[in-house]
Structures are given as structure tokens and as C-alpha cells.
Simulated scan of single mutants.
Amino acid sequence: MPRRHKYADSHFAITTLLSADRFAEITKQIGDTTRMLGVGSVRFEGAERGRTNFSVRSLSGFYELITFHVVIDDTAYGSSGRSCIDTYKTTQQTYMFIPLSPKTMNGYSVYRKFMNAVAAAIRAEDPRAKVTISERAV
């Protein structure tokens, strides 16, 4: 089994006074508008109770580069949410099967933009929200 990419465990963890329904609405709105020129965009893939599902798609929209979800729970004083990468694709430059560069997670910059945009939108509505963005496993 291949080694996991260094960004495979990237996530945000947010605790807020906003309701779980509002938190889910924000993730969907951000997902619908997150795009990066020359890379791709986030696509909302549906929702279940306490979970919203997304994918990072290539420019043409035909290829899934990353799939991820956001788990949202009600708490006594609002809600909490955490994102999690489910699947991802990597590329690596090689010369005659010899690696020349580290592996790159395709579409990661779009996922990073999504995480930062959700954090900013939550903070805009709840300035006291506790937001943690972790990009590497510890």
C-alpha cells in the first residue's frame, strides 16, 4: 500500500454558536462558489443528516481530483464541524521511472481555498467561533 500524502489529513475543525443547519448552508454556499483559475472547482455532491459531501473537479469537470466531506454536529451551544478528505489523486514528475519531484496532491489548492473560505464565512457570522485549520498530520 502506498504511503499517504503529507496533506491527506488536512482538515478544519470549527466550533460555533451558529446552528448546524446554518453551518451546512454555509459549506454548501462556499462549495458552490469555490473555483481556482487553471486548477478546477468544488462541486457539491449532496448531503445527509449531519454531513455535506463535495468533490474537487478538474477544469473540464470530468475528473474527480479530491473527494471530501464535512461532518456537522449539534452541540449544547451551537454546532461543530470538521472536514475530512476521503480520496485524492497525486502526480509526480519522473524520468525513466526515477522520481524527480515530491508527489503533488492534485486540486489541493482548491480544497485549501474552500477550508479558508468556510472559516472566514463562519467568523463573519460568529466572531467568537473557534477555528482550527490543520494542513499536515502531526
Rank of each mutant, 00 (worst) to 15 (best):
A117L: 14
V56I: 04
G61H: 01
R51E: 07
L37I: 12
D21G: 09
K6Q: 10
I30Y: 02
I133F: 01
R49M: 09
H5M: 15
N53M: 11
G107T: 04
V70L: 11
I122K: 00
I85L: 08
F12I: 08
D73R: 14
T15Y: 06
S10C: 07
H11L: 03
L59A: 13
R57M: 14
D74V: 08
F62T: 15
A117D: 09
S60Y: 11
M115A: 12
L65E: 06
V56Y: 00
F23T: 04
M115F: 06
T75Y: 03
Y7G: 06
D32C: 02
L17F: 03
A47R: 13
P99D: 00
G38C: 06
G38D: 09
I26Y: 01
R136S: 09
C84Y: 15
M105G: 08
K89T: 09
A76L: 15
F97S: 14
F68T: 02
D9N: 11
H69W: 07
I98V: 09
M96G: 12
R4P: 10
S60N: 13
A24G: 07
T91M: 13
P102M: 14
V131K: 02
F54M: 01
D86T: 07
R128I: 04
L59W: 05
D21H: 10
F62L: 12
L17C: 04
V71T: 15
A76H: 13
R128M: 14
V138R: 12
G78W: 08
M1L: 12
S83Y: 06
T27P: 04
M115W: 05
K28S: 07
T27A: 02
